[in-house]
Nucleic acid binder design. Structure first.
Lengths: 338, 338
DNA sequence: CTGAAAGCGCTTACAG
DNA sequence: CTGAAAGCGCTTACAG
């Protein structure tokens, strides 16, 4: 920058001001500066600028699980949102490990990101959120929501679940299985709660419903699912609460040579890419994942703009895509009398 | 840091040195400093540090296409590699747009990343690479390799393709279709070239082979595929060169109610997650995508360590996963006499 | 073993 | 309309 100033015969102040358009400068002077910038191939140093202004124009993203397709889509939304706001994205993967999550947050804070989007791990340490709040750096929770007065964005799980249960009950299913996995993960817990509410709203007998939960993401869910599907009072319909859980359950379905939907109706949250090529064609609750990501950036920006405003929670509505795996919707069987 | 120094009754030099372990300091003094750091809740400012040292301990990743699953896996490898080297990752998405790619590179350079991993867009502007080389910032090309003396890592396409073609020819197929898409994308071009080499190596008649290419990623490939599969001399086997192309081709297969592999043998590069749940079960050439990502980081580190060493190109071998879509491998039909 | 001071490359009151 | 200078929070010769 000193070089540029010398070349143009002005002070560095002036160079800075033409660079940033931050005060009037004589057209001729500006010309000379612009020419000097050209000639020298000068590029502004974002680091020095950020340091001086205490603003990095970057945000951090802490990811718990890059594997699930719904997550990947949220990340795309975040990228898109960040790009359109001119923000650079620093990404750290916590890989479902609370310690790594805490380290990731610290690293990102040390780099002075202007804000942070956080998809927390199951069993996230309280230290993480506390440290974040103490740091005063704006942040928003994505997907994995908490019972806290902080900005957050996720999916509305109850309406979709009740629609699904009602659809199944309407086709005469009254013994359902819910494969929910690790209920420490907020969306999974929400789906289970919504399931139980829907079961009672539909007047299904609670004792006839099976809920398959696990202690961690890595737990193998196959064995309990196998047991459920083989049992004497085996369910006639199954709802998987994530892509991963659906894949595990479907493997068991295949192994037991059950036919979907004849032997078992099957529905899943999140589901798979290219559902029309997947067999069976799965009824799927689809999150507006891209929009969730975009919204996270919007919330973050709003928070950065007005740090004192009230915390807001946004829940976007998913849609239920009906496919053959739960029978044809229009030709649905009349409900059996209980 | 000044606060910490005051609290401990030492100079900032000493604080810096205990922080970085960069020179001996009297145990008692260190104790006092450590205590002062604790007490004040001091956190090192990575920005200031990076600025002073001209080293950010961060690397940039410019992604062309976050959609394909093979790419997602490479990104996971990069995350893992970066994490284990203590590098923070700045990610920018070029979304297959050469202008955005150039902007992304500039942004990342302005932030003084220590190195850059680049998965270039189709039709990437030369300006990008030139600017990168002028900047002297180490970089490595991933997946989309170039005919340049730069560090790069990708997959070996020819061996897998020739294995595939030989497998199909061995089952009596002598009219093949290759759905290759946009041949400006290096791996796709490589797959096409390998296909043509394999066809001639197997002694198949070149005029009976169909190659379906397109001008851009977004081009709809359905129509030419439809024409090929309906034609009078329709192929008896099809090879799709990416997940996206496989999905497009399979949609046509479904639409024409062709049975795989009875009416048409089908194989694909990259393929889908959960291949055993996908229908049909697809013979798939699987890249070691995670390792490609890890290797990118290794190459980058090697380059950072010795800027003058020779450029190296690494090609990792994919594996061919045989499934029903190309017939049972062990019970393969005897080749028909030509 | 420790400290005073220069300097990384910028921005921004302050003064004219 | 422009410039001289302070300062962002660190690291690192240099000197003792």
């Amino acid at each position: 920058m000193v070089d540029v100033a010398q070349l143009a015969g002005v002070s560095v102040s002036t160079v800075s001001h033409v660079l940033n358009g931050t005060r009037r400068v004589e057209p001729q002077t500006r010309e000379r500066v612009v020419a000097a910038i050209e000639a020298s191939g000068y590029r502004q140093d974002a680091l020095a600028r950020a340091m001086r202004r205490s603003q990095t124009e970057s945000i951090g993203l802490v990811l718990s699980d890059a594997g699930e397709p719904a997550f990947a889509e949220m990340v795309r939304g975040i990228h898109e949102g960040a790009e359109s706001e001119g923000l650079t994205l620093l990404v750290a993967n916590s890989d479902e490990d609370p310690d790594r999550e805490l380290r990731a947050i610290r690293t990102l804070l040390a780099r002075r990101v202007d804000g942070l989007v956080l998809a927390r791990v199951a069993g996230s340490s309280d230290a993480a959120i506390e440290e974040l709040q103490r740091s005063k750096v704006p942040f928003v929770l994505m997907d994995r929501l908490a019972d806290l007065a902080v900005d957050q964005v996720g999916t509305a799980n109850d309406s979709a679940m009740s629609e699904l249960v009602s659809h199944l009950a309407g086709q005469g299913h009254h013994r359902l299985a819910l494969v929910v996995g690790d209920t420490r993960v907020p969306p999974l817990r929400e789906r289970r709660d919504a399931f139980e509410a829907a079961v009672s709203a539909e007047g299904l007998e609670p004792g006839s419903q099976i809920v398959v939960a696990s202690q961690s993401k890595r737990d193998d869910i196959s064995e309990p699912v196998r047991r459920a599907l083989r049992g004497p009072n085996r369910p006639t319909a199954l709802i998987a609460c994530s892509t991963f859980l659906a894949a595990s359950a479907l493997a068991v379905v295949q192994e037991l040579a059950l036919s979907v939907p004849r032997d078992l109706a099957f529905a899943t949250f999140d589901g798979f890419a290219y559902p029309d090529l997947f067999s069976p064609h799965l009824t799927t609750v689809r999150q507006p994942a891209f929009e969730v990501g975009m919204t996270a950036i919007q919330l973050l920006n709003a928070r950065i703009a007005s740090p004192e405003s009230r915390a807001t929670t946004v829940r976007l509505a998913p849609t239920v895509e009906y496919r053959e795996s739960t029978g044809d919707r229009d030709k649905s069987v009349d409900p059996q009398p209980l």
